[in-house]
Design a protein around this nucleic acid. Structure first.
Ligand SMILES: [Zn+2]
Ligand SMILES: [Zn+2]
Ligand SMILES: [Zn+2]
Ligand SMILES: [Zn+2]
Lengths: 415, 415
DNA sequence: AATCGTCCAGAGTACACTGAA
DNA sequence: ATTCAGTGTACTCTGGACGAT
């Protein structure tokens, strides 16, 4: 998606007829860096730029640098002294049109996890030039905005992702253990488009399909959370097992709030009306029994109603979903994992603030309001967990384990 | 009515199918890349794929790349982050069915100005995407030697290759089918350093770990053999299954000879003393039962003793290992595969001669001597195959199949 | 029309080097 | 003196455009 088409000017441009065409062939009308005047080898981030300015701009964007000029911002930026004032150099980069969004985030992520006070030689070396980025540094305030945008874009894309149409009807009969399902989500559900439009009453099949589709979405998101990549496998499974239900209810309720339907809205365009008595109540052919009456109906309302009033933006909904996943501590994981989770939690909390487009002093309130809703979600989770035959719905075995962990989780919370 | 509000998330991927006549004919337009989900323009190498994945796959196959994932091979491969992990991207390419054989070998002929005579024309000029080199046309001594050096270097690098240290202790419980294990060797063993130094007595765990590590090395080598690239997948599996045991014994015996220990030397610094009665004999907790007494002990000596006297160089050991893999005909493969194998055999035989740094007239003898040892190896293979619970050792299921083929192989040889 | 390969601008990465702390 | 983030050259890799079947 890079490789901006942009040019359109390219050819010709030269116009500045090469004053002195050096001898025959070489041509390559020597370009000039729009920033410093040095020789440019081509376009970089949208403008002709020399290697130095190219690298300088990329590094500045990666870390979210903000420099200050000591001379009133009037420094000349030319080849010989381009390194004299970073502020003016960066300003000029932007002025001549360098596009920060053209900087990608590619490549291997940082190792990140050393930390331990080990001055030890043994510097593993490796690692790319750049990406230390985070590290102990001032994590809080100045994490890169570009990086944030990328993460949000990425999440957005995950929601939009669909499998090729010919797979939409495909089902994989049989049961699989959780770990297998986690790594081969296609056995649970294909990635059909997510269209929570509440156009028709849900059938039991809709509910089941939605639940399974949500699981795939959940796994996709979980896998995209950078910080969790290095969590050990079994802890990752524990996280997945213990957070899916919460995630699912977040999806349902935010979609319901958005669609404005009176009931539970599903991803495939159907919805489950509230307070209608003809809803399928028990013993579906898939064994789904969701008790929406009584307390849990009330709980759902407790969630949907505030959400409706908040009118979440898409970004908030998306990042909020990640927060739901990370919000609660996961029982029985290693301390290292706990630490990673806490870090991720902080990061996404900040990201959540970032995507609230409000004056800074109001951001905190809105974030808090959203986080408060997590309590409602957890209540829903606990109320419904036992009533949903997860194993039947997802066709995932190993549920003895899974539901056990869900249960552990609940009990722990109750005390 | 009611245009689908579609995705709570707009933008990106949207087909933007402007016109789109109301015709009843269902879309059939924007396809999706089976690898990353980006828009696909059509099939490439057998599956719908975007330009990026198409190019990536072709380049990887051409250069015979083998990547290593730094996150356990579970990276999500989606458009936005497909460049984050090459290993997982390539694995996914293969998983969704991209066919390496569909990558056409090379450009049409390549004139290959034979009589350059000038070693240093230095006309690097266009650095085309495709590295030429290749070609195996007779004559052209210089280029061919360079190619040979490259291959040897490459093999050497494979032996030296290790995964990041944090993976050395990682294990993937569970069982996998052979093909999966072949393409995802990390489930069998991480790439720990190969240090056949015979420093301590081997425990059963050492034996198991070594066996598994050797399998990974074996697969790495197998994948690096140019000629086998065009072999169809199932034949490749047959080759792998039928040659591993021989390869393993070659490793053991050459290392044992090199380390000078009296017994079997393993890759992790341990060794299994010969003619000591306290060796673990049966029913290890991993179910490994290797009978080193009697005939097979004798056979091992038949192999190690000559090897010791030959004092193989590292190059000879390394190329010899490839020869071991290619030496015997593999049962039940297509005639095309047989032909390819024969070609490869010839090529590596020549290569073996090349790395023997002796007067040309003595090369032939040394090569022959080495090849003769293959007979001893095959004997070892047949004597021990039935005594090793491969499935338990490698944690690879599908062994009914595997061991069956090993057996077929043996029977065929006996006649 | 479909699917190969090639080209090459412009992304990224490795590493020797610079210079301030 | 040493460290170490930043700089810039010299590469590799990516993927959209396009040519060849
Ligand atoms: Zn410049
Ligand atoms: Zn300035
Ligand atoms: Zn793709
Ligand atoms: Zn990976």
């Amino acid at each position: 998606y890079n490789h901006r088409v942009v040019d359109s000017i390219s050819s010709s441009t030269a116009s500045t007829s090469s004053s002195s065409p050096t001898r025959g062939t070489p041509i390559r009308k020597s370009l000039q860096c729009a920033v410093c005047g040095d020789v440019a080898l081509g376009k970089h981030y949208g403008v002709n730029a020399c290697n130095g300015c190219k690298g300088f701009f990329r590094r500045s964007i990666w870390k979210n640098r903000t420099y200050a000029c000591r001379h009133g911002g009037k420094c000349l930026v030319a080849k010989e002294q381009r390194n004299a004032c970073r502020s003016c150099r960066l300003t000029r980069c932007l002025d001549v049109g360098m596009n920060p969004r053209a900087v990608q985030g590619d490549t291997v992520e940082d190792p990140e996890w050393d930390e331990e006070a080990m001055p030890e030689t043994l510097s593993i070396s490796t690692q790319t030039d750049a990406l230390k980025v985070k590290k102990k540094s001032h994590t809080s305030l100045f994490t890169l905005d570009i990086k944030k945008e990328q993460i949000i874009d990425n999440l957005r894309a995950i929601y939009a992702r669909t499998d090729p149409e010919e797979f939409w009807k495909l089902t994989y009969p049989g049961t699989y253990d959780f770990r297998y399902a986690f790594h081969n989500t296609k056995v649970v559900s294909p990635r059909t488009p997510l269209t929570p439009t509440a156009e028709r009453i849900a059938t039991l099949n809709d509910v089941v399909a939605d639940f399974r589709r949500a699981f795939v979405l959940f796994v996709d998101i979980l896998k995209s959370i950078d910080q969790l990549r290095d969590v050990q496998e079994d802890d990752k499974m524990k996280i997945a097992k213990s957070r899916f239900a919460a995630f699912y209810w977040w999806l349902c309720s935010t979609w319901s709030a958005k669609a404005g339907c009176n009931g539970v809205c599903y991803s495939n365009g159907s919805y489950h009306p509230a307070s209608i008595s003809d809803m399928p109540k028990s013993e579906g052919k898939h064994g789904v029994r969701i008790d929406y009456s009584g307390v849990s109906q009330k709980s759902l309302e407790n969630l949907v109603e505030p959400l409706r009033r908040m009118e979440l933006s898409d970004e908030e909904r998306i990042v909020g979903a990640v927060m739901v996943i990370l919000a609660d501590p996961v029982p029985n994981v290693s301390t290292k994992t706990e630490k990673i989770l806490a870090e991720a939690r902080d990061f996404y909390l900040e990201l959540l603030g970032y995507c609230i487009k409000l004056p800074e002093e109001q951001q905190g309130i809105r974030v808090s309001t959203m986080v408060l809703l997590l309590a409602s979600i957890m209540e829903l989770v606990h109320l419904t967990t036992d009533n949903i035959q997860l194993s039947d719905v997802l066709h995932v075995i190993d549920l003895g384990d899974w539901s056990q962990e869900l249960r552990d989780h609940r009990y722990r919370r109750q005390f």
